[in-house]
Design a protein around this nucleic acid. Structure first.
Length: 487
RNA sequence: GGUCUCAUGGCCGAGUGGCUAGGCAGAGGUCUGCAAAACCUCCUACAGCGGUUCGAAUCCGCUUGAGACCUCCA
């Protein structure tokens, strides 16, 4: 492989050289959303992060199977395992079929992800479509002796598991600490230990999401779906498992335990976790009720938003921070990203019209290499972007005649910009709202204004400019002539 | 309370021993009939205290502050 990628593996807490199990194939599983509400800014982070990784791996020649699930059953509302299914609760509130809720928010999620230019994963399995696989895996865990049944529900026996394996290795937890620190919650009498987690839960009579199983009519536990579907589509051992840092414990810890218990070995070779988006220094999340949905960002319809923000501004904002750092939301930061991105896109246009010179004053090859070096170093997108802005400086300098680039270097710079901005970072220029008729109309008006200016009739030329501005069209004069854009 | 993470210029954010990213804002300038836009230049920071070192934002210790996880969360 031409490129050596290092990734930060949460399991070892350090950067490791990434070597796929079966090159050139790469298997990657990422925890997707629970579809019971509109996606918010926090959901955009893992989607965009792993989209970038997906795109980069493909770019450097890997054949990636990217699996991202839709969770549509099994996550419980509160009090450990005694709560109400989130999907079912939402359905009761809205008087809808549970699957209607699932469909609605799945569609909504897809639409938002499309807007963010997040590529669809190779496979997007639903938990509800893999009940049989989950039951089969639970059977294996029972057969291996790491689970027990109480009143038709199956629980994972962590104390027993910990005698053969190390429970807590991913999140750095020690079972003894868990023992002394676990909160005593109501209604956990079915568990032998408070930290045991449910693999299968018997449904109460009023619970409408239910499936038959050898133990009871019920539904799978919180963590089963990822283990079952990851194994099904990527094999017993696969390369990458990703998700938000907040899933580290207990979700991913439980997955490791389930794999060990059912398969006798671990499934995941590299664990990758994206950090949180914060708002006023606090995590943006459902439970704190401090989230802003993506739709609200796109429309500007949230009290905390000063204006609407485009999907690309949000994507760029997220990529300007490294995925393992927290990223603090503010209008100021988002507007900064918006303006920077605009400048980046503008330079791409400028680049198209540059004339080659006899010599080159900048080292385009090195710039390109720096971009690759940054991506190879645990997907350091902010450094890639910094390099691209160095490219912007070069482009503008050439445009202004302060520097020159040879035809070969211009071509290489164009290739680099296209590959990194469009293909890898997935940044697409905004819809301009222009169509041919409007464009020709405005161009005609611009020509009339030029005539007026030529005749020193500035009263008329300024009137044209002001009137156009009133209807949302801004004119931009430059040496090459006048261009326009929608405000 | 336990475990862990972080603290960078007005704001957002890279950087993990010497070469001191980048974006936005701000200042100056170029261009322009004017304005806007665009472009160029400038602005040299690393919570505090102590230590290691020829040399630390970067390593170690302490202090202060913030956050994450420990219950569903991306």
């Amino acid at each position: 492989m031409q490129h050596q990628v290092t990734v930060f593996n949460t399991l070892s807490r350090k950067k490791e050289i990434f070597k796929p199990l079966h090159p050139p194939f790469v298997g990657m599983y990422v925890c997707g959303p629970t579809v019971y509400g509109d996606a918010h800014l926090g959901h955009a982070r893992p989607a965009i992060t792993f989209d970038m990784i997906f795109r980069y791996f493909r770019h450097i020649g890997f054949k990636v199977r990217y699996v991202r699930n839709i969770t549509d059953v099994g996550h419980l509302e509160n009090d450990a395992d005694e709560g109400e299914d989130k999907i079912a609760k939402k359905a009761r509130l809205e008087q809808l079929e549970p699957m209607e809720v699932v469909q609605y928010y799945t569609d909504s999620y897809h639409k938002n992800m499309d807007q963010l230019n997040v590529l669809r994963p190779s496979i997007e399995p639903r938990a509800s479509g893999h009940i049989i696989e989950q039951i089969e895996m639970i059977k294996k865990i029972i057969d291996a002796g790491f689970a027990y049944e109480t009143n038709g529900s199956i629980y994972f026996d962590i104390e027993k598991y910990n005698k053969s394996y190390n429970y807590g290795k991913l999140s750095g937890r020690v079972l003894e600490d868990l023992l002394s620190n676990t909160r005593v919650l109501e209604g956990q009498d079915e568990k032998q230990n408070p930290f045991d987690f449910a693999l299968w839960k018997k449904a109460e009579p009023e619970h409408i999401m239910r499936w038959p199983s050898p133990w009871s009519d019920g539904f799978p536990g919180w963590h089963m779906e990822c283990s079952a579907m990851g194994t099904k589509y990527l094999g017993e051992t696969f390369d990458i498992h990703g998700g938000g840092m907040d899933l580290l414990f207990p979700h991913h810890e439980a997955e490791i335990a389930q794999s060990n218990a059912a398969l006798g070995h671990e499934s995941v070779r590299y664990w990758l976790h994206n950090n949180m988006i914060t708002i006023n220094g606090q995590k943006m999340g459902k439970s704190l009720n401090n989230f802003i949905t993506l739709n609200e960002f796109f429309s500007g319809s949230h009290p905390l938003l000063e204006k609407a923000y485009s999907s690309m501004a949000i994507r760029f904002f997220i990529l300007q921070a490294h995925y393992r750092s927290t990223l603090d939301f503010s209008n100021e930061a988002l507007q900064a990203a918006e303006k920077g991105l605009k400048r980046l896109f503008a330079s791409m246009q400028t680049l198209k019209n540059l004339k080659p010179g006899k010599t080159s004053d900048s080292d385009v090859k090195m710039l390109r290499q720096s971009c690759y070096d940054a991506m190879n170093d645990d997907f350091n997108s902010p450094v890639v972007i910094a390099q691209l802005f160095e490219g912007v400086r070069i482009i503008n300098s050439v445009h202004d005649g302060h520097e020159s680039l040879t035809a070969n270097d211009l071509e290489l710079l164009t290739l680099t910009f296209n590959e990194f901005i469009t293909d890898i970072l997935g940044l697409l220029p905004e819809e301009t709202g222009k169509d041919d008729i409007v464009d020709n109309l405005v161009k005609t008006i611009i020509a009339l204004r030029q005539q007026a200016r030529k005749n020193k009739d500035f009263k008329t030329s300024d009137l044209i400019r002001d009137e156009l501005k009133k209807i949302g069209i801004a004119l931009k004069d430059s040496k090459e002539g006048t261009s326009w854009e929608m405000l």
